[in-house]
Nucleic acid binder design. Structure first.
Lengths: 224, 224
DNA sequence: TATAGTTTGATAGTAATACTATTATCTTTG
DNA sequence: CAAAGATAATAGTATTACTATCAAACTATA
């Protein structure tokens, strides 16, 4: 599996970048260190100037890869959702029973990423943290509709729809499969965030995982 | 009820502002027009300079009320959650049956605000839209923990806990009342957002409301 | 291997943002 | 009427978010 993942290249919509960061050494360093830096100081305080200094390069060179930091965030989060989609498909593909498949799918999507896998320059553990803390900022903008039309959120949407389909496979009569799917994905990130910063607003902690909570929620709602 | 609401002043943590905007005419104009402006151009493009121009005043005067625009957003959203908490308590207080009470509570929290009530300078319809589109930005920061300690999110937390208690009253054995409560409040905003911008990711639309979806979700999860 | 093309780095510059400071004016109230 | 307090006007600073230009380095291929 490690080998398989090593060769897999997550395909991000090529309108998100000016020059493909996977196509050069500098591009890869931009990705690698932007993840480290956004994780460290937060997206709001992150700038291309600071990144340039960190990678021993220059602001203007970073601008040759991404129009602005918003696009870079779209790139990183798209990559993450693509990577997660791959995990989802890979882990559930061979499961014949639709309930078990859904259970496994929820597990993949709601768990927190614990170990960095094979992509050398991309740290998935930190990227998972970034998605929890910053993803909303990528779509809570006045430009959402335009950017949605451009396909900037298509990987994320595909993931939500994959989970929706798994729900439908278990109970084709359930009235809210799309809402439930989007609630699981967004809600899991939110529960992880609350566990870290607002423990009084969640039951999730060291012992109880968001996965348990969402599996209970889902299987009580469907198939009666 | 209109009269009652007219006299009610939502109490926002006084560390959020430098000078209470309710204490002067200029302060009220700041609140009134910041709501209109943030709704119009979005929080990211909103600045105190633009606001000053709009209200025929001056950047520096706005700074005498709020340290920065982040604090102003905290003020507006705190006010909103306080207002919603009032609606919740007022509407559910007299309901004896815990199930009916919870049902009503979910309705209050998940519905979209349709008409501006009595607070002359605060437009609750627009403020509801602002909360949907911008609230996450107020806590997805590197300063959350500090600001949480300062009590900047206490009204929001109180609201989540009120709903948690309503859930517990219906089923004291349910394992995830806090997570369910926070999922409803955050999830309702998210479903409204999706209905507006990503209709393929939700079942909510003109005909199906987030309220229906969440009532179904909650009452299938508790009390079996 | 010469040279043309491409990529990167360095520097400079602009407009806007996010403030702070100072002073003048205007309003309220004692 | 005077003093205090609030507001407006102006100026100024550091940082952000870029754009433009040019030279150096590296690469590709004729």
């Amino acid at each position: 599996m490690k080998y398989l993942l090593q060769d897999l290249k997550v395909r991000v919509n090529d309108k998100i970048y000016i020059k493909d960061p996977e196509s050069s050494d500098l591009g890869k360093r931009i990705i690698e260190h932007s993840i480290l830096m956004i994780h460290e100081i937060g997206f709001d305080k992150f700038t291309f100037k600071k990144l340039g200094e960190k990678i021993g390069s220059n602001e203007s060179s970073v601008y040759r890869y991404f129009e602005n930091k918003h696009k870079l965030l779209l790139y990183l989060t798209s990559w993450y959702w693509g990577w997660l989609e791959y995990q989802l498909v890979f882990a559930t593909n061979s499961i014949p029973d639709s309930k078990n498949k859904l259970r496994k799918g929820i597990e993949i999507i709601t768990r927190s990423v614990k170990e960095d896998t094979s992509f050398s320059h991309i740290n998935e553990v930190l990227l998972n943290q970034i998605v929890i803390n910053e993803y909303s900022k990528s779509y809570l903008t006045k430009e959402v509709d335009e950017e949605n039309k451009e396909g900037y959120f298509s990987i994320y949407k595909r993931l939500v729809i994959r989970l929706t389909d798994m729900i439908k496979d278990v109970d084709s009569d359930y009235a809210y499969p799309s809402s439930l799917s989007s609630t699981i994905i967004e809600g899991a990130m939110h529960q992880h965030f609350l566990a870290d910063h607002f423990p009084s607003l969640t039951d999730c902690n060291k012992k109880i995982t968001p996965t348990e909570y969402f599996i209970d929620l889902v299987f009580n709602s469907i198939k009666k």
